[in-house]
């Protein structure tokens, strides 16, 4: 399995700790941001294979991050996987998917399912590049 460089952006430290630990144990390289602005900086300054982005965050949310990136480079949105616990405000999610965000996962996700989801994601990307 390929080692992926993954950025996790979520204001809940328990969640970033868990996912990064789980992904590390599965041999992936993880970076973490616990607020939106820091997350945007890392997305823009470093090249990650995939960004796991929480939609609801205080001050600067996942929506703000997506909108900011969309203005500069829409293709960068392809590596963003949103995750959200709120299921009703799906119209907002639809807008983000419409902008070019890869997909949206619903919390709470099974860590094993996340691993296999990322595997599929990477395989498709490799196939596309070839």
């Amino acid at each position: 399995m390929c080692i992926m460089k993954i950025l996790i952006v979520d204001d809940n430290k328990d969640i970033t700790d868990l996912i990064s630990k789980y992904l590390n144990l599965n041999d992936h390289e993880c970076h973490v941001a616990n607020d939106g602005r820091n997350g945007l900086n890392l997305i823009e300054s470093q090249n990650h294979d995939v960004v796991l982005l929480d939609v609801s965050m205080p001050e600067f949310s996942g929506i703000d991050i997506v909108n900011t990136i969309a203005k500069k480079d829409k293709s960068a949105l392809r590596k963003i996987i949103l995750f959200t616990a709120s299921s009703v405000a799906s119209s907002e999610i639809d807008k983000l998917l419409g902008l070019g965000v890869h997909s949206c996962l619903k919390k709470p996700m099974d860590p094993d399912e996340l691993i296999s989801y990322l595997k599929t994601f990477e395989e498709k990307n490799i196939a596309l590049q070839q």
Partner: peptide, 30 residues
């Protein structure tokens, strides 16, 4: 709708680390 979204978010978020850590604890050699 906004209130429901907020409540769902607040109720579901803690389940991520709970279920995740359960998984790690239950898995052999993890």
């Amino acid at each position: 709708e906004e209130f429901s979204a907020m409540i769902t978010h607040e109720l579901k978020t803690p389940l991520v680390p709970i279920l995740g850590h359960i998984k790690m604890l239950s898995k052999k050699d993890m």
